[in-house]
Design a protein around this nucleic acid. Structure first.
Lengths: 203, 203
DNA sequence: ATGTTTGTCTAACGGTTGTTAGGCAAAAGT
DNA sequence: ACTTTTGCCTAACAACCGTTAGACAAACAT
């Protein structure tokens, strides 16, 4: 069912739309633009989708699910706070680099969601942010992170990883793993207590 | 001349437009929306502005000028790299909190600029980023910053300070100074070499 | 007092928007 | 072989878009 030819076609439509939405924004991309990208007429799209808003909803909520699944997994499997944070950052970077178009829509275009969807979406987004905050809290309890302002730390981390979407290109020779490590090093350099650092260096 | 009644009216129009552009985005905000916010008819706007695009250009380029002036001043006055970075972050935060509407447009809606303006805009944006990079380089030369990947450090810093625009509200009790300090502390904790930190703590 | 500038108005334009109705050929199901 | 479903098409819709033309009253300058 999820891979039926009908759904494959729909996925093509969503992908083409995401590509346009990233370039010109949701509001500036017309239904005719999307159709043209697929070499069909605008009216033909309505055999597959309910309306333009549905496309935006599919993109935003499928991406939200990816991010939430990834961080739930991290919290289930790993125990050490630093390890958790590094894995969470890695998964986040992987999701973004895997599909920069949909990621861009998830990050920027959710504002155009209809009122009800917008509300649901923001709840999910908050949930994800809270999972990150919990990891930072863990680290402070374990006494391996500085007790900095949690909110600022989490917002700084998330803004840094999200910014990747602005400059990352699949043609470049940087892989998600490399990017995640550089960001983690930078971020953890700021979070990790000095004596922990010293231990690492001296042992 | 710059404060003539004509320009004051134009500034009101630009401010009302910025407020709408932040909420709904440039493309989704109609000229009629802007006029309604000012209690006039759409056609009346054209006595003050050339077209809709001109409003976007005014906002984007006036904000770019503010940012560039601020960092030029920092590079002129201060010498110590850490001091420079702290002041640059402070000014950046001040400019954003001073006018969240125009800042949001500067940060998000520049994509809708007409081709020629877009080109000019991106040059200015790169120039600003380069000034930040120079400060980080200075810090490395002075040996007070870790020799991390410059590009990542600067992008992380800028994305963190820009993200303020997403959650800052003038009604909250946080001032630009407080925000800038927390971000600087977090960022510098990651940049500053450990022995410098130790000196600070031990003297 | 007279002429000019300023800021708004109404009305209208050509073009684009998202969406629907209905038809038609190819493919799939029986 | 016949029926149904699928995926597209053309044509059209009402609404809205940015923008222009031209009128008119108030404010200002002389």
């Amino acid at each position: 069912m999820p891979d039926s030819p009908k759904n494959i076609r729909k996925e093509h439509i969503v992908a083409a739309a995401a590509h346009l939405f990233k370039q010109k924004g949701y509001a500036a991309s017309s239904v005719r633009d999307i159709a043209t990208a697929l070499n069909i007429e605008a009216a033909s799209l309505y055999h597959h989708i309910k309306n333009k808003e549905e496309i935006l909803e599919i993109i935003c909520f499928s991406m939200a699910a990816k991010f939430l699944n990834a961080i739930a997994e991290v919290n289930d499997i790993y125990f050490n706070a630093e390890e958790k944070l590094r894995k969470a950052i890695l998964h986040h970077v992987e999701i973004i680099t895997e599909d920069v178009d949909k990621s861009a829509v998830f990050l920027r275009e959710w504002r155009s969601l209809p009122a009800q969807s917008l509300e649901d979406f923001l709840l999910l987004r908050n949930q994800y942010e809270n999972e990150f905050t919990r990891i930072v809290e863990n680290g402070m309890e374990e006494d391996v992170f500085e007790s900095v302002d949690k909110k600022f730390a989490v917002l700084s981390i998330l803004s840094s990883v999200n910014w990747i979407n602005e400059w990352y290109s699949a043609e470049g020779n940087m892989q998600a793993k490399d990017i995640a490590q550089k960001i983690s090093d930078f971020v953890l350099g700021g979070l990790r207590k000095k004596w922990v650092t010293d231990l690492h260096y001296k042992i």
